[in-house]
Amino acid sequence: MSHSNSKYDAVILGCGVLGLSIAQELTNRGLKVALVGKDLPEDIHSTGFASPWAGASWHSFATNPAEQRRDEYTFREFERLSKEIPELCERRPYRYYWKNEGSWKEPWYKDLMFGYRLLTPSEVPPPYKYGVTYEAYTLNTPLYLHHLASHLRSHSVLIIRERVSSLDELYSLPSIGKVDLVINASGLGARSLLGVEDPLVHPAKGQTILVEAPDVKITYGVEDTHDIPNQKIYIIPRPGKAGHVILGGIYNANDWSTNVDGDVAQQILRDCYELCPDLDGKKGRGTIGDIRIVAHNVGLRPAREGGLRCELEERVIGNGVKSGNELVPAGGKGKGRKVGVVHAYGIGGAGYQSSLGISKEVGGLVDQWLEKKKSKAKL
């Protein structure tokens, strides 16, 4: 049921995993929403957004209660999804190894995992000395994006390609009509979007290799600090029949390049083959040259100093409003009216594992704004 005289209750800017998840949450709450973005869920080869390139294992690095709450909620939703659609989300063993005592810090989520325990020395392969194992979830990210988009479209949610340069334009898009609420899930776009222009937003370049390795069923990682700055070692099998596995990777803050670095790719292959010889498809009896490479991937994580911005802002848009109004395209100008925006951007590398928890939080902020607007209308 619509809560407004407008055709739509809200417009969501951003068609990555967070925008799609928020649309699903708001639709489930009975709101009519539309999604807009310059990149759509089907654009899985675009470097314009990070979602298609993610490895998407649930491995929380939350540092405060709010982040932990979001990740835990998403974990429990993934548990349900893995039972309903296992080709999208699969529960599997995780193994993390390290050489240096103290590299592994006991995580906050220890009791949330399935079968969490330290490995015995005989279970840890050389050259590593220590290890831990548990079971958690991995996603097939391209299929998951397609699943979310298909679900939304089946519920008559409009998903369209629009290029906007200002927040104000979204309240009066010709293709959608007038709305009073926008959800800003614009990722890296929040840095340059007029009306937001958040200087804390920055890219964190990631580079991985997608390989075909159907024998690899375990998610692996190395917890020691890598000899090369900003480099990590991890292996993430994707659900599905293709037998695809993600090998990584790097985290280069403030690097806008979307080019593949050959030296980085070589290092990723060497590191991951040492960690898991089964990648060669010959049960470790082959060579690194036997690894079947499907693609080299580069994505820009939408990071933000200080972490996620998730908050409600009340605004006034239209003529007579200063604050850069002279730069706003004509479509974003009007007589001046009170509107709302819920910001949800800056999640960095935690997009998938936090997505459903953030969406629930956004839903609460939307309810808060609608209730306040309803109360004012009665006065």
Rank of each mutant, 00 (worst) to 15 (best):
M1I: 14
S2M: 07
S4I: 12
N5S: 15
S6E: 14
D9F: 06
L13S: 04
G14A: 08
G14E: 05
L18M: 12
L20I: 08
A23G: 15
Q24Y: 08
N28D: 09
G30M: 02
L31A: 02
V33T: 07
L35D: 00
G37R: 08
D39T: 10
H45A: 11
W53D: 04
G55W: 00
S57Y: 12
W58F: 15
A66F: 15
R69P: 02
T74W: 02
S82M: 01
S82H: 06
E84Q: 14
I85W: 03
C89F: 09
R92N: 01
Y94F: 15
Y94C: 05
R95M: 13
W98Y: 12
K99G: 09
G102W: 09
S103E: 15
S103G: 09
S103N: 12
K105R: 05
L112H: 06
M113K: 09
L118R: 14
P121Y: 04
S122M: 10
P127I: 12
K129P: 03
Y130N: 13
G131Y: 12
G131C: 10
Y134W: 14
A136Q: 02
N140V: 00
N140G: 01
N140M: 01
T141Q: 00
H151N: 08
R153V: 10
V157Q: 04
L158F: 08
I160D: 11
R161D: 00
E162R: 04
R163T: 15
L167C: 07
D168S: 12
E169P: 00
Y171T: 03
P174V: 14
S175M: 08
I176R: 02
G177Y: 03
I183K: 06
N184A: 14
S186I: 07
S186C: 15
G187C: 10
L188S: 04
L188Y: 08
G189T: 13
A190G: 11
R191A: 15
L194N: 07
D198C: 09
H202I: 07
K205T: 07
A213R: 00
V216L: 01
T219F: 03
G221L: 02
G221A: 07
D224Y: 03
D224F: 03
D224Q: 06
T225C: 08
D227V: 15
D227C: 12
I233E: 02
Y234L: 06
A242R: 11
H244T: 11
Y251W: 04
T258F: 02
T258N: 05
V264A: 12
Q266K: 15
Q267N: 11
D271H: 09
C272M: 06
L275I: 03
C276T: 05
P277K: 06
P277I: 07
L279W: 00
G281D: 02
K282C: 14
K283P: 10
R285E: 15
I291A: 02
V294I: 15
H296M: 06
H296K: 14
L300C: 04
A303P: 00
A303S: 10
R304V: 10
E311H: 10
L312G: 14
L312Q: 12
E314R: 06
V316W: 08
I317E: 05
N325F: 10
L327F: 05
L327T: 05
L327E: 11
P329N: 11
A330Q: 14
K335W: 09
G340W: 05
A344W: 01
Y345T: 08
G346S: 05
K360W: 09
E361N: 09
E361L: 04
G364T: 06
D367V: 12
L370A: 13
S375N: 13
A377I: 11
